[in-house]
Structure formats: C-alpha cells, structure tokens
Computed example of a mutant assay.
Amino acid sequence: MKKLLISLAALLLSANAYSATYVIDDDNKGAHAFINFKIKHLGYSWLTGRFNRFSGTFDYEADKLAQSSVEVTIDTSSIDSNHARRDKHLRSDDFLDVDKFPKAKFVSTDIKVINDNKFQIIGDLTLHGVTKQIAIDAHKIGEGKDPWGGYRAGFSGTTEIALKDFAIEKNLGPASTHVILELHVEGIRK
C-alpha cells in the first residue's frame, strides 16, 4: 500500500511539473492569431503583409513562464502583401523560393523572463533553408475562460531579421535590409 501511495504521489507531482499545452487559434473560420511583417520601402514608407496559413502550439503556465516553449510552422506560399503581382515575386526564388522551401519553422530553445508579463523567447528560425537563432521580445496580453467552455492565453511579440542572414540576397536598397515580424498569438488550452 505504501508503495502505491508513493507511486501515485510521484505521478501527481510529475504531472504538475509540466505546463499546459495550447493550440494556436489559426482556424480559418475565426482565427485569433496573426503573423505580420513589415519592411521599409525605399526608406519612405512601410510595406506590410502577413502569412495567412500557419499552425503551432505552445506550452505555458503563468507561474512557470521560464519553462514555456513555442513551436510554429508557416506555409511560406501564404504570404499576402495585398498585391497579387508583388506576392508572386515574394514567392519566387528572389525571395522565399516557396517551391524549394514551402515551410518556415520556429522552435524555442529558451525563455528569459523580464517580469510577469514581459519576456524574451530565444529560438531557431528556419527560413529559406537557413536556420538562425533569433530573439522575440514578447509580452502577455491576457488569459482566462472563453464563452465556449475553453481556456485561452494570448501573447504578442516582435523581432527583426536581416534578409541576408537567411540567404535572401535580393538588393532592395540600404533602407530595406531587415524585416520586422509582428506576432499576435492566441492559444486554446488542450
């Protein structure tokens, strides 16, 4: 009996050591997650867009933020800058080369907590066949029960990447060497 109680206690303690898993709300019927980008156009304005198709999960518990993790896969052919001809060019081998590299992926490797709502997500971004470590400055928007009986958590984050770091060599001029990624993620707890 004593062994059974010890085994049950160990099982319960180990179950509490894990974070809850959330699925990113990317459903086409009511998506509440966005991966947006912007890059300067000639240094005079911003060209903005987004990726329409992506999926992912994150593991998170509010009191164990440093133990959280994120994994997201992006369909690079879903790039959308609100201009069909430009999108065709962005999908070409001048930029994303979506025929050769149809997916981009981010996998976190570390979470650095700044305070209860601010943190930095360090991880590997694979884009255009190149994997580089990036840092996402993130903050928690909120969490709680939804009207449908589920539980949700939402976060936002930004990062800046250099095109050349991902072997995208197209010269867009000195003002357009970096892309800012803006991430707005809402997850539904499994």
Rank of each mutant, 00 (worst) to 15 (best):
D93L: 03
Q120V: 15
Y22T: 01
D137R: 04
G149F: 06
G123I: 11
S45C: 10
G142F: 09
L181H: 02
S92R: 03
V98P: 04
K145T: 10
N28I: 05
V72R: 05
T126P: 09
D110N: 08
N82V: 11
D110H: 02
I79M: 12
F101C: 06
T109L: 00
F37S: 12
S19M: 02
N115S: 14
E143A: 04
E186Y: 03
I134R: 06
H83I: 03
I161R: 10
R152E: 05
L47F: 10
A62K: 11
H83A: 11
A84E: 15
Y22K: 00
A62R: 06
G154A: 15
V23C: 00
F37N: 12
I6F: 10
D94K: 13
I39P: 10
Q133G: 11
W148A: 10
A135D: 09
I134F: 07
K112Y: 04
P147Q: 08
R91G: 04
H128K: 13
L96W: 09
K164S: 09
R85H: 06
R50E: 14
S7T: 15
D146A: 06
T109G: 01
N82H: 13
D99L: 12
Q133L: 05
L11A: 15
Y22G: 00
A9T: 15
V113Y: 09
L8R: 03
E71G: 07
E169S: 11
W148H: 05
L47M: 14
H128F: 10
H32V: 00
Y60A: 00
T109W: 00
A104W: 04
K100L: 09
A10V: 11
G187Q: 05
A135I: 15
D94T: 08
E186C: 07
H32G: 02
D63S: 12
D94L: 11
T177K: 14
K3Y: 14
R152Q: 09
